[in-house]
Simulated scan of single mutants.
Amino acid sequence: MMLEIFEKYFGKHNSLSESTKWGEEVSNQKTFDEQREIVDKLASLLYLNLSLIFREDKKLEIDHGEFKEEIIVGKVNDVYSEAVFLKPRNLNPPYPVVVILHDHGGFYYYGKERIYRQDNTQTFVNEYQKKFYSSLPWALEFVKNGFAVFSPDAFYFGKRRLSAELVGLLADDNSIDELLNYEEGSYEYIRIFNKISSQLEPMMFKNINLYGTNWPSILLNEDLAWLNYLLQREDIDKNKIVCMGFSLGGFRTLFLSSLRNEIKCSIIIAFMSEFRKMLGKTARHTFMVHIPGFTRVLDLPDVAALIAPRKLFIMQCEYDSLFPKDAMQSSVERIKSYFVNFDCGNQFEYKFYPNGHEFNLNMQKDALEFMSRNL
């Protein structure tokens, strides 16, 4: 019974019995021998199925005047999730698309909504946008500038957040009683749900490993499945696909872009460092980014090397308390050396911003400029 509960949440495709031999498929797409070696090492650490696809189960379209919002419910095996597709009003398909992979921020109740919702009744969303995004639903600015935006909920967030069944199974009675004192979706309910989800991350990390996989593999399998869904749509320009993300979204962008050549341009925001240099106080990141054994064979700049010769922009926050500054600096220097060695140094850019861990208005403008210039 316990296995069935977790299998329903994790997805049968992430179980030990599923095939994980994907490295050769990616290596055959790559140009450089060094990249093939990196793929071989990565394939020993991540348990992926590159052919997974979310099948559209339901779709709801809302007309907002300047843009249209599609809410898509998708299914892969027995797992249901949700994504949003924002379409510009003044542009005919096929659309250039920005795939935005949302961040963590301790905000589990919602996923994709944080990047585009502009509803004054969504107090928690508004506070979150104020803290990290200069109070802006920043994805809408990309839509206004002629890009469609596609954003899925990540595993453990939004429609993929912890189910009531798992909360009841894993959380302590006091936390559950406190949660049930409030109406679902209310400010206090969301606050307590976020607290419970944060407290349960270590336990969930252990259960994922006992299940026979790791957290990044589950995240990436679902990101791959949503990208495969997107690529089947006839209303997108498959030669103009950007992938970007802030914080955890930057981590997700790094790995998804490294595996799929359909992504022509990538922007990694506030998540690039050398993990080997992060021993100590900065090793307080979410469990979601930990791949057991990763630093024995690879580091984040090596994964970024797989994006070459496609376009890559890394936005670093100079006063980001989550990363040592020297590790942020050395990581982009290593990536630059890869791109130069592959004779595509002009395809890589990076910039340090004089702020903490955020994606503020100045950074948003630079991201839009980079996309517009490079697509």
Rank of each mutant, 00 (worst) to 15 (best):
L136N: 07
N126C: 09
Q129M: 08
Y128S: 01
V143H: 08
E141I: 13
R114G: 00
N120T: 13
K130S: 12
F147I: 06
F124V: 13
F132H: 09
R117S: 08
Q118W: 10
Q122Y: 13
A139Q: 08
L136T: 04
T123H: 15
L136G: 00
T121D: 10
L140Y: 06
K144L: 02
G146Q: 06
A139Y: 09
F132S: 01
E127T: 04
F124L: 12
L140F: 07
L136I: 05
I115R: 01
N120E: 13
K130L: 10
F147D: 02
Y133F: 15
S134F: 01
K130G: 03
E127C: 06
N120A: 12
Y133G: 02
Q122E: 12
V125W: 05
A139I: 12
Q122W: 13
G146V: 10
V143I: 13
E141H: 10
I115P: 00
F124H: 10
V125H: 04
A139D: 09
S134Y: 02
T123Y: 15
K130T: 11
N120G: 04
D119I: 12
F142I: 03
F147R: 10
E141P: 00
N120I: 14
Y116C: 05
Y133P: 00
V143W: 07
V125F: 05
K131E: 13
L136E: 12
D119W: 08
I115N: 06
Q118E: 11
T123Q: 14
K131Q: 12
L136R: 15
K144R: 15
Y116K: 03
G146I: 10
T123W: 14
L140W: 07
G146E: 04
F142H: 11
N145H: 14
P137N: 08
V125D: 02
N126E: 12
Y128L: 14
Q118I: 04
Y128N: 02
T123P: 01
N120Q: 11
V125L: 14
N120R: 14
V143L: 09
V143N: 07
W138N: 00
P137A: 15
W138M: 00
Y128Q: 00
Q122P: 00
T123M: 13
F124N: 14
L140M: 07
L140Q: 04
I115T: 11
Y116M: 07
L140A: 07
F142A: 13
Y116I: 06
Y116P: 04
R117Y: 03
Y133Q: 03
G146S: 09
